Simulated assay, not measured.
Amino acid sequence: MAERKVKIFTRFERFWHWTQALLIVTLMFSGLGVHGLHHMLYFGQAVTIHTIAALCLIALWVFAIFWHLTTGTWRHYVPDIGGLWPIIRYYAYGVFKCEDHPYHKGFWRKHNPLQVLAYLGLKLVLFPTMWITGITYLTYEFWQSTPNASAKLELVASLHLIAGYMIVSFVLIHVYLLTVGHFFEHVRPMISGVDTIDLTPEEEAYLETSEPHRLKG
Rank of each mutant, 00 (worst) to 15 (best):
A59Y: 01
A59D: 06
A59K: 04
L60Q: 12
L60R: 09
V62L: 15
V62N: 11
V62S: 12
A64D: 15
I65E: 14
I65K: 14
F66N: 07
W67K: 02
L69M: 11
L69H: 04
T70I: 15
T70N: 08
T70R: 11
T71S: 15
G72E: 09
G72Y: 04
T73C: 13
W74Q: 14
W74Y: 12
W74K: 10
H76Q: 14
H76T: 09
H76R: 06
Y77V: 02
V78K: 15
V78I: 15
V78S: 15
P79S: 11
P79E: 14
P79C: 08
D80L: 02
I81F: 02
G82L: 03
G83N: 07
G83L: 05
L84T: 13
L84S: 08
W85M: 05
W85E: 09
I87T: 12
R89I: 04
Y90R: 03
Y90D: 00
G94P: 08
G94T: 11
K97G: 01
C98K: 05
C98S: 05
D100M: 01
D100R: 09
P102A: 04
K105T: 15
F107C: 00
F107K: 00
H111R: 10
N112A: 00
N112M: 02
N112K: 04
N112P: 01
P113S: 10
L114E: 06
L114C: 03
V116R: 13
V116E: 11
Y119T: 10
Y119I: 14
L122V: 04
L122I: 03
K123T: 08
K123D: 15
K123M: 12
L124S: 10
L124P: 09
L126E: 07
F127H: 12
F127E: 11
P128W: 10
P128V: 01
T129R: 03
M130I: 14
M130D: 14
W131K: 01
W131L: 05
I132Q: 06
I132S: 08
I132W: 08
I132E: 05
T133Q: 14
G134L: 06
G134W: 04
I135C: 04
T136C: 11
L138A: 09
L138H: 02
T139F: 11
Y140P: 10
W143I: 07
W143D: 11
Q144W: 04
Q144N: 09
S145H: 10
T146M: 13
T146D: 10
P147L: 06
S150T: 13
A151C: 00
L153T: 00
E154K: 09
L155I: 12
L155A: 07
S158C: 00
S158E: 03
S158H: 05
L159W: 08
G164V: 06
Y165W: 15
V168R: 00
S169G: 06
V171K: 07
L172E: 07
I173V: 15
Y176G: 02
Y176R: 00
L177Y: 01
L177V: 03
L178S: 12
T179L: 09
V180G: 10
G181Q: 13
H182W: 13
F184D: 12
F184H: 14
H186F: 07
H186L: 10
